[in-house]
Design a protein around this nucleic acid. Structure first.
Lengths: 178, 178
DNA sequence: CCGCCTCCTCTACATCTGTAGAGGAATCTA
DNA sequence: TAGATTCCTCTACAGATGTAGAGGAGGCGG
């Protein structure tokens, strides 16, 4: 589908140049389409951003599938895979920042691993699963952000390696401990 | 100083509109200065961004002052104050994302609470202070991000309240536990 | 008092950007 | 096959943006 081609190019652009690089014509070039294509599918810039965000949501639909025998391990592997999918994750952060002043994006980005985390916290016997779930989510987000754009991006182990997964697993284990 | 007036306006702009809103003329208007002022002080856009980031660094210079009798509490209060200083923190995130494709910004943003965290981890008797320090940093960043732009921004307690500080403290305590 | 230098304002201009619509090619319907 | 419809490409244009430089106001040294 033409539309997916366009939104994929948009995601790559945002990852490489930031939201500022997201212009109709730049997307045309990136996607190798004739000038005007993006503008035809997404007449306004707002529509283009919404398209991008919806595409992100689709691509991330795959839930974290929890191997209940190795919860920390499966979470760690998921985080590592997000680090490997650098572009997508960077674009998501840009979109989240954008959602700060465009509330309509927030629903699409909801992304809700939140209930999953709450359920997990309950299963692990945390006192206050609501709160613990939020903390776990925050921690996971933090690990990801820290390793992708924060201080850990220069010093941490290379994403995609076993070392990376093991490092993440240590951290996740700590976060899950009641 | 004229320059600080300009960079402060730039920070507010980025917080409100994102990096895309950062244009010479918009800064002029925001600062209430005649058109051309920003362009005179920061001829190129790159220079403007660097000025903004340096200003951020200056404003954040105040280290986290650790009350050693209440480590978790002082960290929690610091995080809460960052949540209250919403604009500054949002601008910092935008700048960090920008630093992804402009490496020269990274040095300015270094921000290194990293060594502090490592030292803290050592003092608290963590096995591997290097790694534990990184995890603590990641966790703190995560709490902040989650509450400022992530899922916690809509559901969490209002920043600046005692409830907010207490919630953060619970989370920080858990993160610090060896 | 005069010339000089710094700081600031204004104007200019090439380029980029958002958005719109005209019209052609391809596909479908009957 | 003829007409209608959808999809795509191209061109247009008003306004915004990055960047540069001319020139004035005001202070300073002599």
């Amino acid at each position: 589908m033409r539309k997916d081609l366009i939104t994929d190019a948009a995601i790559a652009l945002v990852a490489e140049l930031g939201m500022r690089g997201l212009t109709h014509r730049a997307v045309d070039r990136k996607a190798g389409l004739p000038e005007g294509s993006t503008s035809a599918y997404f007449r306004t810039r707002k529509a283009l951003i919404e398209g991008l965000v919806e595409r992100l949501a689709v691509q991330e639909q795959q839930e974290i599938d929890l191997d209940t025998d190795d919860v920390a391990g499966s979470i760690a592997r998921t985080i590592d895979s997000w680090l490997v999918e650098r572009n997508r994750t960077l674009a998501r952060y840009a979109a989240m920042l954008e959602a700060t002043h465009h509330p309509e994006l927030r629903t699409i980005l909801a992304h809700s691993p939140r209930e999953q985390a709450t359920a997990l916290a309950r299963a692990l016997g945390h006192e206050n699963p609501e709160r613990a779930g939020a903390h776990i989510t925050a921690f996971i987000e933090g690990l990801l952000f820290y390793r992708l754009v924060g201080g850990g991006s220069t010093t941490g182990p290379t994403p995609g390696t076993e070392e990376s997964v093991q490092d993440l697993r240590k951290a996740v284990e700590k976060a899950l401990r009641p």
